[in-house]
Design a protein around this nucleic acid. Structure first.
Lengths: 203, 203
DNA sequence: ATATAATTTAACTAAATGGTCAAAATTATA
DNA sequence: TATAATTTTGACCATTTAGTTAAATTATAT
């Protein structure tokens, strides 16, 4: 039954995602994935031949989700400032719903740097890049953004969005003793980070 | 022989650090640590009873190193701006020498959030906090830093310093195709990040 | 209905892994 | 130098784990 089929495969994939994200590739157990999916362990191997296959499928999906969130920034017919606000709002909303993804990605990318290289080869970064540059030539002059500082700026923007979620456990440990709630903090962050960047690039 | 003793114990600890940082707790193998230390696996258990014991020792040391780098900021008789520059310069220099620590910490802290909570309980954060507040009351007014935004600001500073190293593999994959060298980037970053923050908090 | 194909399971295997132990080697001590 | 204490080792064990297999069950086509 193709319908039932799809159901089990999907259930396996969801369970695998949950376990891999929580425990990482090395910490994840095929048995745990099977249990969570409510199926036999052998069935995992029927749908995804090996742990590696299953993990790769999960990783690709997650990486794709993470990076997809960046792309609207490149098309949208918005000013640079609007794009920055839009990005933080969208990306942090996504991370609020998927708070463990940053930690997962950072872990796996460190464990196997080749994987992300291969993954990014399929994304035409140069193209997106050129789009962005041509869309904002005048603004970049205005904001004093040069080719030299673009990587610094881009990585700073990513840092401000992603880091709090990657290091969430540390921040929560600190916040706990200051009476700060992480949820509140991350909600505030959408605006704070956007303002922060915009002030930083305004001379 | 206490001297020789110290040597093997140290060698074990160094090897364990290297392997744990590279592979994480779950990915690390006691055999690999023993091999790297040039000793028998049984000897690991002679000095550190279990893998957990050994890992805890390594983790504590690394966490301590990471957070120690923050503390001079609290004593130094410097202006807020000087402290910011000082921090980025010092912390990024440390990370250049220990580029894998951020990824390691983020991974392990996500795997076991309790560990970092326990660790931070031994650091008198409230005290450091109060020191900082009292040292810079006027400047905080000048920069429009309120009690509300302090967590946002602090986490932003940490993010700008730590994130590029945690996500180094991703950045390198991107930079590779833009002809940018990570070493150069991280050297530039000390000044860029400091300027970035200072502009961001100046109205 | 029946044969064929696809899905699911229980039981099993081989390899890896953390940990143990008794003996050997080395070092300290009387 | 003899003896005791410590350090180091090789061989071993129990458990865990990814992966296999053959049989059973279910769905599909004729």
């Amino acid at each position: 039954m193709t319908e039932n089929d799809r159901q089990t495969e999907e259930k396996i994939f969801e369970s695998a995602t949950e376990v891999f994200v929580a425990k990482g590739m090395d910490g994840a157990r095929m048995q745990d994935i099977a249990d969570l999916a409510g199926i036999n362990k052998a069935l995992l191997h029927y749908y995804y031949r090996t742990k590696d296959h299953l993990f790769n499928a999960v990783f690709e999906k997650i990486a794709e989700q993470m990076f997809r969130k960046f792309s609207p920034v490149f098309d949208a017919n918005l000013s640079l400032e609007e794009k920055i606000r839009f990005f933080f709002s969208e990306h942090i909303s996504f991370l609020q719903k998927n708070p463990r993804l940053p930690g997962f990605l950072i872990n796996e990318v460190n464990r196997n740097p080749e994987r992300i290289k291969k993954f990014l080869r399929n994304i035409e970064i140069e193209k997106l890049w050129q789009t962005l540059l041509s869309q904002h030539q005048e603004e970049m002059k205005k904001y004093n953004i040069t080719n030299e500082t673009i990587p610094q700026l881009m990585s700073s923007i990513a840092a401000l969005s992603v880091f709090p979620f990657a290091a969430r456990a540390i921040l929560e440990a600190l916040f706990e003793r200051m009476g700060i709630d992480f949820k509140e903090y991350s909600e505030q962050r959408k605006e704070y980070a956007a303002d922060f960047v915009i002030r930083a690039i305004s001379k």
